[in-house]
């Protein structure tokens, strides 16, 4: 039977993902370069995918399991099993406005233009509160948008708040909190049950230890 494939997110969550895998007793194979996107570890093939693509790999069965931020699970509709909170990659999604116009938030009938990488989360958040909103979809440096008049504010991830401060933005509402999650393809959970259960058990134990 083929080795289990685990999709891991390139970027911010990757170093902690490797740390967790090592803590769970998985060891890197020989001869993989740091740039290779398909890595053979002992008992595991790692597929390095962009976070935004990761659920596609898992959902279509190109990977059996995956490590992905809760922010992505909230933004993208999906049919994977979300089994373990891995604890790392903690961050929050917030709405932030320029300090000088933060008073705009108090008027809940005033339409706001919000720049974000999370259009669906944003739409849901404002819709649930009955606030009018116009969403501006951006894929990088969202905090720039209010400074150049592209939007009134942003909905984005914050870890320490440094970026917000450096760009003169202040948080006005928390939308979600996020950590990395272990997700599993529903068919793999059934057709490759033993291998999947072992990975789930080892990673959740390691995650408990790391926390």
């Amino acid at each position: 039977m083929a080795v289990l494939r685990l999709a891991v997110p390139s970027g911010r969550l990757l170093p902690d993902t490797f740390r967790l895998l090592r803590a769970a007793g998985y060891r890197p194979g020989e001869g993989d370069s740091d740039r290779s996107l398909l890595r053979r570890w002992e008992g595991l093939v790692l597929v390095v995918a962009k976070p935004v693509d990761l659920l596609t790999y898992v959902e279509r069965g190109a990977a059996d399991c995956g490590v992905v931020g809760k922010d992505v699970l909230l933004e993208q509709a999906h049919e994977v099993y979300e089994l373990v909170d891995l604890g790392f990659g903690r961050c929050r999604g917030v709405v932030a406005l320029p300090a000088e116009s933060r008073h705009l938030w108090a008027d809940s009938r005033r339409p706001l233009r919000i720049a974000t990488k999370y259009p669906r989360v944003a739409e849901r958040f404002f819709w649930e509160r009955g606030r009018p909103v116009e969403i501006v979809e951006l894929y990088g440096s969202v905090e720039l948008a209010p400074q150049v008049g592209l939007s009134d504010g942003i909905l984005d991830l914050v870890m320490t708040g440094t970026t917000l401060r450096a760009n003169g933005l202040v948080e006005v509402a928390e939308v979600f909190t996020s950590t990395a999650r272990l997700v599993v393809n529903p068919a793999s959970l059934r057709t490759r049950a033993e291998a999947v259960q072992e990975l789930v058990a080892r990673l959740s134990e390691a995650a408990q230890g790391v926390r």
């Binding site: 898992v58 959902e59 279509r60 069965g61 049919e79 994977v80 393809n185 529903p186 068919a187 057709t191």
Partner: peptide, 9 residues
């Protein structure tokens, strides 16, 4: 019912 490589039932 599930079949290999199809993520959903």
């Amino acid at each position: 019912a599930y079949a290999p490589a199809v993520g959903a039932p």
